[in-house]
Simulated assay, not measured.
Amino acid sequence: MTIVPLYAAPQYAEQVTDWIWQAFGEGLPREFFHSIIEHSQTPGALPLTFIAIEDEQLLGTVGLWRCDLITRQDLFPWLAALYVDDAARGKGLAGQLQQHVMTCAGQAGYEELYLWSACRDFYERYGWQYIGDALEYPNKTVHLYRYSLCASAGDATE
């Protein structure tokens, strides 16, 4: 299994678009997600989309985005649109995709990553810290998480 930027294998763009639209697109048109994917394939620039592939089979996707929650534009960058195909679940791929984004963000000089989720108790097992709730447009309460990319992330603070 390899994780590569989507721009290195653009033939998977339509499947990635369908996945994130079906998983996260309640009430939004597919074109909205097509635009996100289309504009997340520039090397060295945010947003970026990554994909996990094995034997030419698409297994999962994740993004490193400038913004994923319009009500919290003060926070960036974001780990976003993490999706693992049903057939590939339960094998640790979600953790590998997260680690890939963390590594890329750290190499780009970022000290923290953020994400939001409607569920609890998933991201904590990967070291994410719950930092409170926020509002996803138009009126959905979601949970905010932060991950420190600094070497001292495990150290006690204040």
Rank of each mutant, 00 (worst) to 15 (best):
P10M: 09
Q11E: 13
Q11K: 12
Q11P: 02
A13Y: 01
A13Q: 05
E14T: 07
E14C: 00
E14P: 00
Q15V: 14
Q15C: 11
Q15E: 15
Q15F: 14
V16N: 04
D18T: 09
W21Q: 02
Q22V: 04
Q22K: 14
A23H: 11
G27Y: 06
L28F: 02
E31H: 03
F32E: 12
F32A: 13
H34D: 10
S35V: 12
I37L: 05
E38C: 09
H39G: 13
H39N: 15
H39T: 14
S40N: 06
S40V: 04
Q41F: 10
L46Y: 05
T49L: 08
F50T: 03
F50H: 07
I51R: 02
A52W: 02
I53D: 01
D55H: 15
E56D: 15
E56C: 13
E56R: 11
Q57K: 13
Q57L: 14
L59N: 04
V62R: 03
L64A: 01
L64N: 05
L64R: 00
C67A: 10
C67D: 09
I70G: 06
T71D: 06
T71R: 06
Q73F: 12
Q73K: 15
D74M: 01
L75T: 09
F76D: 01
P77S: 12
A80N: 10
L82P: 04
L82I: 15
Y83D: 02
Y83I: 03
Y83M: 06
D85P: 04
D85E: 13
D85W: 06
D85L: 04
D86I: 10
K91L: 14
A94H: 06
G95E: 07
L97G: 06
L97C: 12
H100L: 03
T103L: 09
Q107M: 04
Q107F: 06
G109V: 07
G109E: 03
G109H: 04
E112T: 14
S117T: 05
S117K: 02
A118L: 13
A118Q: 09
C119R: 01
C119N: 02
R120W: 09
F122I: 12
E124C: 09
E124M: 11
Y126H: 14
G127K: 05
G127Q: 06
Y130W: 11
I131T: 10
G132C: 10
G132P: 07
G132M: 11
E136S: 08
Y137P: 05
P138N: 05
P138G: 05
